[in-house]
Simulated assay, not measured.
Amino acid sequence: MARRKKVYEGKAKILYEGPEPGTLIQYFKDDSAPTAAEAAPAAVEGKGVLNNRLSEFFMAGLNAIGVPTHFIRRVNMREQLVRMAEIIPLEVVVRNFAAGEISTRLGIPEGTPLPRPIVEYYLKDDRLTLPMVAEEHIVAFGWATQQDLDDMIALALRVNDFMSGVMLGVGIRLADFRIEIGRIWEGDYMRLIVADEISPDSCRLWDLRGLVDRGDGQPIPEPGPLADVYTELARRLGVLPSNVTHTVKPTLIN
């Protein structure tokens, strides 16, 4: 498919005009998010191909169970046809286990199961390093309405149920993940959909197959990070292209 005008370029993806009104072509780059020591994203060969296939797998699965997403179909190894949406300027994070920033902020040991899935919001502004915001901030500053927030929580928890089940089925624990949500209009009716991507870049994944026995018949409760996360996840889900064999580490949620 011939590419059209570039609409947006981020750290990991490029958006081009789609072939029809209201559509976009989403191109997955090999770049990963830069670390504190890097001035620019680091290129990881094959990462974009795998993230394209993995995001297709998850988005198509959500569509199939009635969770609306922007995904229409995969075009080729690196591109998807998606619906154009007005992205709400928030990252929606769902946490199932304590890890990263929530462990540091609240003093909860890493790996502790949370009493229930916790939904958090972070303002999408790289200049401010994605500050955490409360529902009161979101409504007061007009980023979303209270009804939007109620719908966003419902969407996020449905995504969590689906993703947790899929991951558990292949021996992986979904500790936490982040999604973006957009608005689309169908005539005068507006609804919210899951947008952007779902891939190892936006998930914290722990390998359950590597647990060892402590000697009392019980496995060690703290699973380790999934080694070679992109390739291994694609392999376990059965979506690994045969020509991708690289080894990389995951990008984790703070």
Rank of each mutant, 00 (worst) to 15 (best):
M1R: 04
R3P: 00
G10K: 07
A12F: 01
K13W: 14
K13E: 13
I14K: 03
P19I: 08
G22C: 11
L24N: 10
K29G: 10
T35P: 00
T35G: 15
A36Y: 11
A37I: 06
E38R: 03
A39Y: 09
A43S: 14
A43G: 00
E45L: 04
K47E: 11
V49H: 02
L50S: 03
N51G: 05
N52R: 03
N52I: 06
N52M: 06
E56I: 00
F58C: 10
F58E: 12
A60M: 10
G61I: 10
N63V: 12
A64H: 10
I65S: 09
G66Q: 04
V67E: 12
P68D: 11
T69W: 09
F71C: 07
F71Y: 15
I72N: 08
I72R: 10
R73A: 13
R73I: 06
V75G: 07
N76H: 03
M77N: 13
R78D: 06
R78C: 04
M84N: 09
P89C: 10
E91N: 05
V93N: 07
V94W: 11
V94I: 15
N96R: 06
F97E: 03
A99P: 00
A99R: 01
G100S: 08
I102M: 14
I102E: 08
S103P: 01
T104R: 14
P109W: 12
G111C: 05
L114R: 06
P115Y: 13
R116P: 00
P117A: 13
E120Y: 01
E120F: 05
Y121V: 07
K124C: 11
D126H: 14
R127M: 13
L130G: 02
M132S: 13
V133C: 13
V133A: 13
A134L: 13
V139H: 02
G142I: 08
G142K: 04
Q147L: 09
Q147A: 14
Q147K: 07
L149G: 02
I153A: 12
V159K: 04
V159P: 01
D161P: 00
D161A: 15
M163G: 03
V166F: 01
M167Q: 03
L168C: 00
V170I: 14
G171I: 04
R173A: 15
L174F: 01
A175Q: 07
A175Y: 06
E180I: 02
E180F: 01
I181T: 02
G187H: 03
G187S: 07
D188N: 10
R191G: 09
R191Y: 12
L192Y: 03
S199G: 07
S199T: 12
D201R: 00
D201Y: 01
D201S: 01
L205K: 00
L205V: 06
L208K: 03
L208I: 08
V212C: 05
D213W: 12
D213H: 04
R214T: 15
D216Y: 12
Q218I: 14
I220S: 09
E222T: 08
G224M: 12
G224Y: 04
L226S: 10
L226D: 13
Y230G: 00
T231M: 05
E232M: 08
L233G: 02
A234Y: 06
R236V: 05
L240P: 00
N243P: 00
H246A: 11
K249S: 12
I253S: 07
